[in-house]
Nucleic acid binder design. Sequence first.
DNA 1: CGAATTTTTTAGGTCTGTCTAAAAAATAAA
DNA 2: TTTATTTTTTAGACAGACCTAAAAAATTCG
Lengths: 216, 216
Amino acid sequence: MSKSTHREDHLKALYTLGEEAGQESWVSTNAMAAHLDVKPPSVTAMVHVMSELGWAEHRPYRGARLTPLGKKLALTLVRKHRLWETFLVERLGFGWEEVHDIAEQLEHIDSVSLVDKLDAYLGHPTIDPHGDPIPTAKGQIADSRRLTPLLEWPHDKPCQVGAVKDSNDKVLVELTSLGIELGTVLRPEDRLKVPLALAEEVLVEPQSSQEISTNE
Amino acid sequence: MSKSTHREDHLKALYTLGEEAGQESWVSTNAMAAHLDVKPPSVTAMVHVMSELGWAEHRPYRGARLTPLGKKLALTLVRKHRLWETFLVERLGFGWEEVHDIAEQLEHIDSVSLVDKLDAYLGHPTIDPHGDPIPTAKGQIADSRRLTPLLEWPHDKPCQVGAVKDSNDKVLVELTSLGIELGTVLRPEDRLKVPLALAEEVLVEPQSSQEISTNE
DNA sequence: CGAATTTTTTAGGTCTGTCTAAAAAATAAA
DNA sequence: TTTATTTTTTAGACAGACCTAAAAAATTCG
Ligand SMILES: [Mn+2]
Ligand SMILES: [Mn+2]
Ligand SMILES: [Mn+2]
Ligand SMILES: [Mn+2]
């Protein structure tokens, strides 16, 4: 892979962890190291590089935080990742649990026109195969949809699967084998069959009119 | 077997130059360096690595040559490169002059199932957008088609464009602007308009029954 | 508060792939 | 067949990204 692959992965990690922890917070190098499966000193070094490039600022012993430029670049990466995942599932017929690692490579392909054409080819999708929103070309995420953790949803009302939280492969495979995928309608009685560990990962929304029928 | 982009590009260069120069010939490190836009000592170093990996053999001061394993790996790279080029042109609507650099990146994506699915998605194409044959999953190139350089084709007979030789971007753009693409039928009078420098790059075959009509 | 623990950075190495400059081998010319 | 030229390899450096071990700062706790 090209040289910037690792830089870009660090950038994305900083973005992801920063989003999780709230806007103005500093992300610890330890957290990034764990997320990237790398040792903390390696992250410190890379954070310095990102700082040089104007992608992040670094407060020693506090953590790192993206600059506006860094955030913009991170969003193009997220966009590419999720568009490729969509392509792999929608067009090539991959399962939703198979695409993350491949998209992790594809997201680093450097070509603006490629991303635009892929986006158009897919019909400008707004969410990826895991229900995560796809940033627009201008770097805006349409976070208009309000999703609720399945476990917090009222027990007597039906709902519809809108996204899965942390796309761990195993979780996705097990959900699929239970007949649960994006858009699946869950009635109160359906929920009894879902193990807690899986239910924790599922985000739901009110049942929409144009639902996808369950295949059970 | 950890692979890297640069190793793979060296492997492919060795394959390409080896094919051009005939089966049993040794490829000079200088030729590879020129082809890869790298200095000769870098190639020497990489040839040693490929030799370690069992991909090539090296005769000092003579050159390098692929082993059967190396040839097999090189063919999977060529296959990936040409499948991606086909995808970019056929599905995403790129021009044939735009796809080489992007495919040069995409060919290094590491996923066997991705290649197979892409191949199926494209309908198992046998040639890429430049007319070059696409190796099969088993590493076989169907070189059944006999193409003739346009300049050697009898002046009074019509022919059909089957491939372009060295896919230089400028050449491809100029050919397109003359209305010449893959499958274009060239009648004797059409050939008068084609500059020598361009005609040199064109390979033709006898006019087939199901030709693509020219857009002029 | 001050000592013990945890977190983070610095210091110093390794590995890969590149470079330039110099040495060695092969080839061409006289 | 010697000498000159070209080609190729070796030697030594450098940059990026990673590591372990040790030092420094921040945090926790008695
Ligand atoms: Mn990645
Ligand atoms: Mn996703
Ligand atoms: Mn390449
Ligand atoms: Mn091609």
